[in-house]
Amino acid sequence: MNEAKVESMVWSLLDGHRQLEARVDREGEDYVVAFRGRKLRVQLEDPRAWNGSGAGKQSSGIAKITTPMPGKVVRVLVEVGAEVKAGDGVVVVEAMKMQNEMKSPIDGIVKQVAAVEGATVNGNQMLVVIEAHAG
């Protein structure tokens, strides 16, 4: 493949005579590549990050509820020690005049509440940690 960098973060690629223009943006650790208005997310993984601390997923029995976007915490619906069922709302976040209820993905006990009512939060900020029931 023949590639020409045409602008900052923009490449024109030639595969034979087939031309593709690709635009790249960084989003956190990911790269987002756009072709004619369509975006493709690419993850370049570094094996050094594989140190076993893959926290955050349900596999460890822990669910971390994070904000999908920047906004403001309107209401915190749970406190530490509370029992929640999958689908129960835990925090309400407002962004651009829309209120969004963050729900627990698992049944479990609330271990930590980092969300504070009235506080402004960034995207991907941890709000609540829930630990699944043992067994």
Partner: peptide
């Protein structure tokens, strides 16, 4: 497939150090 291949290629170009392992996550 050509776009997916190209996406990997330009992502690697956008990042200086050579990637060790690559996978593509589309929506």
């Amino acid at each position: 497939p050509a776009e997916i291949e190209a996406a990997k290629r330009v992502s690697a170009l956008a990042r200086r150090p050579k990637p060790q392992q690559v996978h593509v996550k589309s929506k």
